[in-house]
Design a protein around this nucleic acid. Structure first.
Length: 988
RNA sequence: GCCCCGGUGGUGGAACUGGUAGACACGCAGGACUUAAAAUCCUGUUCGCCGAAACGCGAGUACGGGUUCGAUUCCCGUCUGGGGCACCA
């Protein structure tokens, strides 16, 4: 960036005129440079550069109505530091920001307040942006995107159409245009292309060609990567709407507490299961934490086993019914004591006996009210016997068929064979319903708990007897295949991703329904804009609000909208080429920027967003639109900043033996200090009596009625705004002003103070534990705020917010300032040559800051800056040579003060593009080491020894040492451990 | 319930590959400067014991075991806090 020096000096003087230039006036400095950088487009990034590229991305924020709290910027500061660091290191750095602007909260707000989501979202974004700007981020705002903007979602719709018009070719292991598949069908039917949506669909070329258009389209729907099907949703009759999982609590709606049941609705899905293996394999090529990879692996849940068909004795005498189960342990087939099928299983109706009908129906009704989560988490064992029996194919044993909620319809075949001696859940179920348990593993089963071993020898297992379980698996599968009643099967826990919402505020599907056939709009019709509506209530039969718009319905347009993750699955590509009208992202741009080199965000997206965006990337890559099939090369997970909530304890008035009923509303609100509450809860009678008396006196003063006795003291804990609490001490005056309710509050104090309770929780407005970054920036400046957020601890770690330590970081920055300016004497720096001691401090710092920044250890980097400034202050060092290097290193962390001092030193170009100092090891070399010397692992003394010394020399020195001899007490030396440059251990 | 992560002084944390536990800060205590305050600077600060003092002894990284010359770090078990579990984003 180019600036005119004369203009700069005038500006800095005029802006700094509130005090002496020697004073650290952070607000003037920060405003000045933010304005200057903006004017100079200092953060504009070009797609054309001779420098190597580097792409740093923050996870897409949803602009919520409550604005930013101190937890949000943690990751943004980390990515900002890294971006600036890479820029100083000579990279062309892309560091964009935008908004995931569609979402449920805005729609909910619209329903409640009648404000159009587009309006409230735009307002939220404004607030968000102002807060972000305050902190001095280096985002290239020219590249901002908003998912709710038609110019953006035009391309979301376009990509959806690519998914809709593609299928996964298992032969080539990639997505291909469905038109190609049609050509194949015309020539050879689907012999080579098993139908992923329904394995039973098989046809020859002739059959295909004879199908009607509708029949063909129905078949193709079973191949498409974006397809329509039916799925269960949380349906709330009373609200007439579909609810999100987190809007359902204990089977009733969060709002209003109305009953919620499962309802089948037509839904769009993405056929992510076809990509299961590639999503799994891809994990090996990307730098995510092991924990993250493990979570994704578990989510995909690949397992291999067998699908086995059991003959079922139908109660109505009909034959030929079969129950298909999936098991990973075919070796335990002789240990099957019962079957469990999901309550949704279609066979239930046909196999339930007359005697059990009522029980089964009642049980199914119960399960309908339960969420999937509740079903899996429940400790209570429930189930019902169908009255039917399956037959063990090998020994003909009759096996009772049960239904239970712990078996989910969506996983495997929705039915399991239960082996209580080998599976804990089966064991508990058997015990609970008194089903006899067969032991097939001899001593390995102790009769008190299941043993899931694979290494026991089988007993009671017919032809498998004596075989080790692990080996028996293949034998059983082979036999089943020979008998034609089972086959080897790979199974995935992952299901196809539901891709529609019965909501308004999301991307419309570019789909028309013509005679029951989904027809894609042509590209020229995109974007299909979201129509304006007056109200946001749901349409008929659980359809979305779009179903209420006559013109929409008349055009036969899809009334569902896309879910929240649609726009966020590909946004990292749009940033590369945000204004392109002709294509979602020019291939040249995506070839240049390629993968995101560093992606920062929380683990809460582990299996949602991160899997979906990996899927979209793979599809786009398969279809040739981009050149890479993993979006994020490296992922850094930021921890969550939790809130530290404060509580006050309000007295619950309880009386006994009162002649008159007291008007509760007239009673004073009394708040009891934490320490006293604790004593009361401990059952301290003495305290209780004392405060009963005190309360009684209070009551007599404020209440005219005659009261003689307070029954017991009980309290209710209420959240109190953390901003009116100093540590744990409540500002009682501020508390009275906080809410009108509390204006006349009375306090029972301890040692003259009101002490609050403390708890760590999620940071949220409703808990009054949020801290606004703006307040801190106003008070200490953005540079201090940035460094303090980093100083809190490792970015990856979750921790509760505590503002207290911020003073220490602020002191450090002021101390740094004093290396340059003395309040009395003014300019402090000089042009002299740095001494060896100063260079040693500097180069140790260069090494550490560089290493720490590179490995995202920003907290230790801040410490290192502190140590450096402390040491330079101690040395009374003010050499420009040293200070300039220090400023460059500081730029990523505290850009404003760095730029200001950089210019004060007389530089005319920006510090943002300075050359990063180069570490020179010769300045930090040591010749001696003060070794800690341990006797049997316990440090007893320190001995300085030359780093050149050989082990023999070291041994001589150590054993000759007085202290060592004293501790050895003439015992013989067993061993001497010498780790060069580290330590010495004398073993006796 | 299942999957993942964490637990170190009064507090946030440091110790990067198994090698001096507590760097750097906060807080607290004492002191200097000041009429005073703020700011700044200096000293001390894991706990217990002994002591005038210590570079004196012992314990110590959630708890219980194990491996090792040596464990905050690796292994097994327990407790406990957090995140996710498919329509919050």
């Amino acid at each position: 960036m180019r600036r005119k020096p004369t203009c700069k000096i005038q500006k800095s003087k005029s802006l700094l005129n509130t005090g002496s230039i020697m004073e650290y006036n952070f607000s003037a400095i920060e405003k000045k440079w933010q304005a200057q950088w903006k004017q100079d487009h200092a953060y504009r990034v070009s797609n054309e550069s001779s420098k190597p590229k580097f792409y740093v991305l923050d996870m897409f924020p949803y602009p919520s109505g409550s604005g930013l709290h101190v937890g949000h910027p943690l990751g943004y500061i980390a990515s900002d530091i890294y971006s600036r660091f890479k820029r100083l290191k000579g990279f062309n750095v892309l560091h964009p920001m935008g908004y995931d602007a569609f979402g449920l909260p805005a729609e909910q707000y619209a329903i409640e307040h009648g404000v159009h989501p587009a309006v409230s979202t735009a307002e939220n974004i404004d607030t968000f942006r102002k807060q972000l700007d305050n902190i001095g981020f280096c985002f290239d705002w020219d590249r901002e995107v908003r998912t709710s903007d038609p110019s953006y979602y035009k391309w979301t719709q376009w990509i959806f159409l690519q998914l809709f018009n593609s299928y996964y070719n298992r032969l080539t292991q990639k997505a291909e245009p469905i038109a190609q598949l049609v050509t194949v069908f015309e020539k050879e039917g689907n012999i080579k292309h098993v139908c992923p949506g329904d394995h039973a669909i098989r046809f020859s070329a002739m059959e295909w060609n004879n199908y009607t258009h509708k029949q063909q389209q129905d078949i193709l729907m079973n191949y498409r990567l974006a397809f329509c099907g039916y799925g269960e949703v949380n349906w709330c009759e009373a609200l007439g709407t579909v609810l999100a999982n987190d809007e359902v609590i204990n089977g009733v709606s969060e709002r209003g507490g109305h009953p919620v049941v499962k309802k089948k609705l037509r839904q769009w899905y993405l056929r992510i299961t076809e990509y299961a293996d590639r999503l799994l394999d891809g994990l090996q090529t990307i730098d995510f934490s092991e924990a993250m990879k493990e979570m994704q692996t578990n989510w995909i849940g690949k397992s291999s086993g067998a699908e086995i068909s059991f003959q079922v004795e139908a109660t109505d005498g009909r034959n030929g019914l079969h129950l298909h189960v999936y098991t990973t342990r075919p070796d335990t087939i002789f240990g099957v004591d019962f079957m469990v099928v999901a309550p949704e299983h279609e066979l239930i109706e046909r196999i339930t006996s007359d005697e059990q009908k009522e029980t089964v129906e009642a049980y199914i009704a119960y399960v309908k009210s339960r969420s999937e989560r509740e079903r899996q988490a429940e400790k209570k064992i429930t189930g019902a016997f169908t009255g039917a029996y399956a037959l063990n194919p090998f020994d003909g044993r009759k096996i009772p068929v049960w239904i239970s909620e712990y078996v989910l319809a969506g996983y495997g075949t929705g039915a399991i064979m239960a082996v209580p001696c080998g599976d804990e859940r089966d064991y508990k179920f058997a015990k609970h319903f008194n089903i006899p348990i067969t032991n097939i593993i001899g001593d390995a089963y102790n009769g008190e708990e299941a043993n899931a071993t694979k290494d026991a020898k089988l007993e009671n297992s017919g032809f498998l007897n004596g075989m080790v379980m692990r080996d028996a698996m293949e034998v059983v599968i082979d036999k089943l295949e020979d008998m034609g009643i089972g086959k080897r099967k790979v199974n995935y826990k992952m299901r196809d991703a539901a891709f529609s919402r019965q909501r308004y505020w999301g991307e419309p599907f570019p789909i028309q329904w013509k005679n029951g056939v989904a027809v894609a709009l042509s590209e020229t019709e995109l974007p299909l804009e979201l129509p304006a509506v007056d109200h946001y209530s749901p349409g008929p039969e659980g359809e979305g609000p779009l179903a209420n718009i006559p013109e929409w319905v008349a055009r036969e347009l899809e009334t569902n909208t896309m879910p929240g993750y649609a726009g966020s699955s590909w946004y990292f590509l749009r940033y590369m080429d945000p204004h392109n009208q002709n294509v979602f992202c020019d291939r040249k741009a995506s070839d240049y920027w390629n993968q995101v080199d560093l992606y920062i965000g929380g683990t809460e997206h582990a299996v949602g967003h991160l899997l979906y965006s990996r899927l979209w990337t793979k599809v786009l890559c398969d279809l040739g639109y981009i050149g890479f099939d993993e979006p994020f090369r490296k992922l850094l997970n930021q921890g969550m900043i939790q809130g530290s909530s404060r509580f006050v304890y309000r007295l619950l008035w309880k009386f006994a033996g009162t002649e008159r009923v007291l008007d509760q509303a007239k009673l004073p609100q009394v708040f009891i200090s934490k320490g006293i509450v604790d004593e009361l809860h401990k059952g301290n009678k003495e305290i209780e009596e004392r405060y009963k008396t005190e309360l009684l006196n209070l009551l007599k003063q404020t209440y005219s009625g005659s009261v003689s006795f307070i029954h017991s003291i009980d309290v209710v804990a209420l959240h109190v705004d953390v901003n009116i609490v100093d540590g744990v001490e409540l500002d009682t005056k501020a508390f009275k002003q906080w809410k009108p309710d509390f204006a006349d509050a009375e306090f029972i104090l301890e040692d003259g103070k009101y002490i609050c309770g403390v708890e760590v929780e999620k940071m949220s407005k409703s808990k009054f534990n949020t801290v606004n970054p703006n307040t801190l920036v106003d008070k200490f400046g953005a540079d201090t705020f940035r460094m303090y957020e980093m100083f809190l601890g490792p970015v990856e770690q979750s921790k509760p917010w505590d503002t207290k330590g911020i003073e220490g970081v602020h002191r450090f920055i002021k101390k740094l300032w004093r290396l340059f300016f003395d309040e009395q004497k003014g300019k402090q720096w000089d042009e002299e040559k740095a001494t060896a001691a100063e260079l040693k401090v500097l180069h140790r710092t260069i090494k550490k800051i560089e290493d720490d920044t590179e490995r995202f250890s920003f907290n230790t980097a801040v410490s290192t800056f502190m140590i450096c400034v402390n040491e330079l202050s101690d040395l009374k060092s003010h050499k420009r040579e040293v200070l300039e290097s220090l400023l460059i290193m500081l730029t990523p962390y505290a850009p404003h003060i760095a730029e200001e001092l950089w210019h004060q030193l007389g530089n005319t170009s920006s510090v943002l593009d300075a050359a990063y100092p180069v570490y020179n090891a010769s300045f930090t070399a040591e010749s001696e080491k003060e070794y800690p010397v341990s006797i049997n692992g316990r440090v007893r003394t320190n001995i300085s020894i030359s780093l050149d010394a050989t082990e023999a020399q070291v041994k001589e020195i150590v054993l000759g040492n007085e202290m060592v001899q004293k501790w050895m007490e003439d015992k013989p030396l067993k061993k001497l451990i010498f780790v060069k440059g580290k330590m010495i251990n004398v073993v006796i």
